[in-house]
Design a protein around this nucleic acid. Sequence first.
DNA 1: TTGTATGCGTTATCAT
DNA 2: ATGATAACGCATACAA
Lengths: 352, 352
Amino acid sequence: MDYILRIREVGPVVNIEQVARQAGVSVATVSRTLNNSSAVRPVTAQRVREAIEELGYVPNQPARNLRRNESQVILALAPNFSNPYYSRILTGIGDRAWELEYSVLVCNTLGHANSERRFLKMLESHQADGAILLGCHWDYGWLARFAERSHIVQCCEYVPDLACPSVSIDNYGATREMVAYLQNLGHRRIAMIGADNQYISTRLRRQGYLDAMAERGIEVREDWYRLADAEYSFASGLAAAQTLLGTDPRPTAIFCISDILALSVISAAQELGLSVPGELTVTGFDDVDYTTIVHPYLTTVAQPCHEMGRRSVDLLLDGLQAREDSPDRRTFLPYRLMERESAAAPQNAETL
Amino acid sequence: MDYILRIREVGPVVNIEQVARQAGVSVATVSRTLNNSSAVRPVTAQRVREAIEELGYVPNQPARNLRRNESQVILALAPNFSNPYYSRILTGIGDRAWELEYSVLVCNTLGHANSERRFLKMLESHQADGAILLGCHWDYGWLARFAERSHIVQCCEYVPDLACPSVSIDNYGATREMVAYLQNLGHRRIAMIGADNQYISTRLRRQGYLDAMAERGIEVREDWYRLADAEYSFASGLAAAQTLLGTDPRPTAIFCISDILALSVISAAQELGLSVPGELTVTGFDDVDYTTIVHPYLTTVAQPCHEMGRRSVDLLLDGLQAREDSPDRRTFLPYRLMERESAAAPQNAETL
DNA sequence: TTGTATGCGTTATCAT
DNA sequence: ATGATAACGCATACAA
């Protein structure tokens, strides 16, 4: 008994032919019933459905896929889906896909060698109908070839001159609004923590900051621009914050391009005995869950992550079904400035 | 031009037959080469590989799947993968699957009506070879039928008398260790915040707490056991904490079955002006990322999430390939007590 | 409205 | 070692 190799198939498999026999019709009729063809008499369809029910028949999806040349699967690539920002978008993708009867195949791109090739191959081998790229910073040339041969949409980040749909927020506008908010609070010594990556969002936020400062004629100090690492890690934020808080004069406000970075600044300020927002104003970006876990709750820019995920799916399927208006349409969803507790007017505002 | 419906297929599709023609061999030989059959002469194989390269041929996966009756896909079901605990496990699942050339289909089970049926159907329709269930609390009868017909493994949680592999930590032992740790610190007034769900982990942690208290002969007060909601939400933790901190006498330590709950307790303590760990010791469970973001860093039980995910995949594939020793083997991975900053000896320990 | 027959791209069996 | 060919389960063009 123990020597017998177990078979992989657990239950007995019933196919379309058995259903046809049971219902006393041909396989074609069963197939038509399955696909809700109007060309089948209601009574017949009913008989077929009963047979399906009796036999517990479930259509073999790979077989359908082979025949119809599609997979009903979409690929979602993210650098790291432990990151709450990405995981919220993924949730949106999953929810919308679920509604549309699609499945979502996820892949962490970080830490996998040759990930690009493998992903491309998944599309080419018909394992997925298309892909949603979350913040993947791949070589432009490669991406262009990729986009040419497959249906993809870029979410959060996008490469500007790539003819490929995308969904994101207006990072430039959001940043200008946030920095103007700080200025209106009375801040002039506003520093910034960016990140050591080439994301379009990173570049746009930098530019938004610079333009907002220029508009008010405020000088921008180069040593008040520090970089966290490419993944916005807490540790790298801490280091950047420490450097920043060591300058003289010290900034009265620090604009961070990610919430986690803002939290690291608050942490660094705590260590130095600086109160937030009393002695230092700190703002974040994204509005992920942990912005309201401890006080001071973070003043930040909220991105509609869930909706961004949903919209990506719609855009992708539009492309698949060739009902897009333009092959490279860019979608910008509304952001929202969340005024909470980590930003306030500077002390001694009059002396600034 | 605009009136012409675009076709779905982006590039030209090359199949095995064209490769065969190009290489001057039969499709069988190409197939054998593809599958690394030893029965093909190296020179021939080389010719085939060149043809593949020239034509840019990629095997059609649904066709292989149809023929081999497998999908190379595993399903991962989680209540909510925005939860960092689950997302870390999913990362482990994804990494291991990647190594084994499997793909992972993810599904958020929360908030989807009829999710059970749909998932079962995905297995039955051959869209996935098996499934990993993360903390799904489904009806036992249904789950039993499910497990009978499909390959599944339970991760984190498991239903005790279900003949199905599982991977988790020893929740009972970990809890006893943690409570003993608090007792050794000098605490006797130890409260607990559990959750309003039927997870095995919830029950085992409750029992571990009770037994640890009984062993030292410490009376357990019923009103020192409060419940957060089923998903361990911050808000529900806050409410539980407020009730707990309003009792007289007040507990000197609160054992929480989740980190987020512990953070809510710290938050509640802050509001009341109680210092942690000075006036109140708080401990968590899981050791998710935000335990070390703000001080006090959380003393908690670390679960090997990533490894749990990896192991789940191995267990599942063991089952698929019928090389399991026993069909219902349970795996327990080592946990670790993380002594950080939120637990300390109680003030006035001598008077307790 | 329904049935017959062919093909989707592969793998596997049986020849040679 | 290689080739011809029959499945795999389903959808559809064509016939009836």
